[in-house]
Amino acid sequence: MRRLLEPLLTAVFTCCLTTLALAHAFLDHATPTVGSSVQGSPSELSLTFTQNIVAGFSGVGLKSEGGGSVPVGKPSISGNTLTARIGHALKPGVYVVSWHVVSVDTHHTQGSFKFTVTP
């Protein structure tokens, strides 16, 4: 029994230790980078999450810090990355990206971050 269990447990733990899989999708990284300053207007938003996300129930919005809404295109989703084109060139200033996603394990998460556009 022990001879059978030991290799089995070792295989399971090796698998778990070497494969990073965390339930609930949280923002892993983004372009523009969270809290960054970018020179000139970015053309698109790209957000990568810690888990694969579901297209129909995930989205992103963009506002200037003053609250003015900026149009963004329909998001496209590939695995754990959501990409959306920005509707027009951004003037210098601070912008807030708000995202909401549903991960493949049915959990809903949301969040926001800022970036700054410099001349």
């Binding site: 899989a21 965390l22 339930a23 609930h24 888990q51 991960s103 493949v104 394990d105 049915t106």
Partner: peptide, 8 residues
Amino acid sequence: LGHAAEGG
């Protein structure tokens, strides 16, 4: 319907 589905 839960965490176990995260592996796809």
